[in-house]
């Protein structure tokens, strides 16, 4: 997994490439913690995300909650069909915001 940050002032966009799984989620979470403190809005660009497992869902949820707690916002974009299916099976499609 690689994560690139595009800084747009109050908004940060993270381009996440590869897998968000048991192995990579701890590293993703460190970056999520950092950006949630820095930006009012965090957009996760999933164009290059291959797959997400429950370990990935957990860190996405924590980022979502951290942004909500500070009155900010988190959104996902360019989610591929297979990753979207995982969100649908687990209820995340109804929890997270997509743009």
């Amino acid at each position: 997994m690689t994560i690139k940050l595009v800084n747009r002032g109050t908004e940060g966009e993270l381009l996440i490439e590869g897998r968000l799984d048991t192995t990579t989620s701890p590293e993703a979470e460190e970056i999520f913690n950092e950006v949630s403190g820095r930006f009012d809005k965090v957009v996760l660009n999933f164009a290059e995300l291959e797959y997400v497992s429950s370990a990935g869902l957990r860190v996405l949820k924590r980022l979502h909650m951290a942004m909500r707690k500070k009155g900010g916002e988190m959104a996902l974009k360019n989610v591929n069909k297979m990753v979207m299916e995982v969100f649908e099976m687990t209820g995340f499609a109804g929890l997270l915001k997509f743009e």
């Binding site: 497992s53 429950s54 869902l57 957990r58 949820k61 909650m65 299916e85 995982v86 099976m89 687990t90 209820g91 995340f92 109804g94 929890l95």
Partner: peptide
């Protein structure tokens, strides 16, 4: 099966892995 309503998802972790197994 884990409750997948937004409220329940925010309240607790767990159960989603096995749900993915069953559903896919």
């Amino acid at each position: 099966d884990a409750d997948t309503s937004p409220e329940a998802l925010l309240e607790r972790d767990g159960g989603l892995g096995i749900l993915l197994v069953k559903k896919s």
